[in-house]
Design a protein around this nucleic acid. Structure first.
Lengths: 341, 341
DNA sequence: ATTTTTAATGTAAGCGCTTACAAATGACGT
DNA sequence: ACGTCATTTGTAAGCGCTTACATTAAAAAT
């Protein structure tokens, strides 16, 4: 096994360059405060030694970590992966590193992760959605840690948010579908408990139903967890009812794809026997056949803007204004008019 | 804006509990070295103050960070996202935190990320694939940082690896396809430069072709980058040749899905006009129609085992033995016998 | 040429924790 | 009773960096 030579320190560099540690530190952090000749001498010592600053020491002394923490429900979901990728790219661009944890959709894990990330000196936090124990907000407040919510925009929330209006997006889609003549609506939603995004989407549908004068009993909502198979199961439950829906709105594309496959398995044609719609517009939505009508969410833009906003909050001690992003309905063949009248 | 009360320190706890900082530290790190009464007194002070240890200080003093760094090409690819998720879960289980960076498939970015993660005190590193500048291996060696490679198993590599034999897996698939009677083979590969996984997959195909006595000119290989559209483009290039292939092997499922869609667009039936296969067995492979014949890779198992192995290397200063995981061919309708003779 | 102002560098005090070592306490054997 | 040994706790020295402040050198102003 290789002998481990421990990493060179600031002191080593200082000695080699014949200057004080303060000067070396300045060369690294504010080069303009050091005269060119010195800077070059220091630089060559750094190169010769292969010096890399020790992060922990730097954080401790500077009380800044250039680290941003993000806690997402899961990386396995393309929507988070994509937004997070854009978020990380922008962070990296601006000299920050990303610390990621996933909470597996469990509030208590999320809370623990928040504490961990803060203890690790995260300068700011990215959180998904608004629903969480108020205690957490107090904690963030008390510690004065900038935090931003993504994937859900709410104008008057505790934390500023960069995202879209889940309720309005689903309201529009549902209105459009009802406008097509559908009168019996099925909904396959993700679990709404502790998930404002899912809850608001369902609420948008309910409001559209009321708005269009449909009876509430024409609406059936099933809640299930995030897996293709659950979408399939929910679909067959919905279609086996006495008077099955003519359109099924799914809370996300993955559930919709599950429904779609189940339709095929049951010999039902989409959209002539039943229409199916998704939400998110992930790649999958374009690729299945029939392709899914869905709501397009600008995931990359969201990640990107969230990064900019959070960095702004961290660097200038500002409160963060949040930003609402537009979504749009993407019409594809999985949605049609209901059969007959 | 809330007054920022700065975080309570070990000292605060010690004072409140009427003990020394050493005792508080011991309560937290090796509780059995402290008598029960004291431990309880300290614990209540911790609770009352809402104390969380400062990570940077701890790292600096203990020279251990309980952080593992991972550098993956991109989070947007389901295969990495899934493996990484499993990796993170196992890490979390064992009290480690994951620091993630993505290199966007660029070696120079990867190198920079490696240095950054090490400077941040990562106790160990997870890297994807074996191809990289030897200098990096020297650096890792010199600093004595345990590192493990995943997604590619090689018995005699610089670093231990947990993964599968890309060459053999593709050799088997190609042999199977040739055994079905295909004689003109097209390959749509990811860029092989700096990517041993892609390179070895192509090599596996070449070896199978030679092994089965096919002329090398019956094999056409196109290299392209990772996007559905590129798979489509490569497919049409391949099929517009004078004597188009009867089977097209793709280096991954995403490229294969692109090829599949292009086939539909060109009015070609799969598999009767042309067979298409993928690699990875991501969800997409099951969902497209016809479903893709592909090579199943145990991504979650890989992430899980990589975590265990890396932790073992970190905690016991061992070299790491690596582990080869099995892949298997998943037969689905996108592969058939060639038309006519 | 001398004083004032400004720029460049050095000195040294922490940042919050861990841990080697020392000290104190108590249990035990003789 | 005393000394021995084990257990529990305290003391204090760093870990590698940043930065307020002191010092020195150089430039500008007189």
């Amino acid at each position: 096994m290789a002998k481990s030579r421990s990493a060179p320190t600031l002191d080593d560099v200082a000695k080699m360059a014949g200057v004080s540690t303060a000067t070396v530190s300045r060369c690294l952090n504010s080069p303009d405060r050091v005269v060119k000749a010195t800077r070059e001498r220091v630089q060559s010592a750094v190169d010769a030694l292969g010096y890399t600053p020790n992060f922990a020491a730097r954080v401790m002394a500077a009380k800044r970590s250039f680290t941003i923490g993000a806690i997402i429900p899961t990386m396995e979901n393309a929507i988070f992966a994509r937004g997070l990728q854009a978020f990380q790219e922008e962070l990296h661009q601006r000299g920050y590193t990303l610390l990621v944890s996933s909470s597996a959709y469990k509030p208590e894990i999320e809370e623990e992760q928040i504490r961990t990330l803060i203890a690790r000196g995260a300068d700011g936090l990215l959180l998904i959605g608004h629903d969480r124990d108020p205690e957490i907000y107090d904690f963030l407040d008390q510690r004065n840690i900038p935090a931003l919510v993504a994937w859900s925009y709410l104008p008057d929330s505790k934390l500023p948010s960069v995202g879209f209006d889940n309720r309005a997006a689903m309201f529009d889609l549902a209105s459009h579908i009802i406008g097509l003549g559908h009168t019996r609506i099925g909904v396959i939603s993700a679990r709404v408990d502790g998930n404002d995004r899912a809850r608001l989407r369902v609420q948008g549908i309910r409001e559209a139903v009321a708005d269009r004068g449909l009876q509430a009993n024409n609406l059936t909502v099933i809640e299930t967890s995030y897996e293709i198979e659950n979408g399939a199961k929910a679909f067959s439950d919905l279609m086996n009812a006495a008077t099955p829906p003519t359109a099924i709105l799914c809370g996300n594309d993955v559930l919709a794809v599950g429904a779609l496959r189940q339709a095929q398995k049951m010999g039902l044609d989409v959209p002539s026997d039943v229409s199916i719609t998704g939400f998110d517009d992930i790649e999958l939505a374009r690729i299945v056949s029939p392709a899914l009508t869905t709501v397009h969410v600008p995931h990359r833009e969201m990640g990107h803007k969230a990064a900019l906003q959070l960095i702004e909050m961290v660097e200038n001690q500002t409160a963060g204004t949040g930003e609402q992003l537009a979504t749009r309905i993407v019409n594809r063949p999985s949605l049609g008019k209901p059969a007959s009248g």
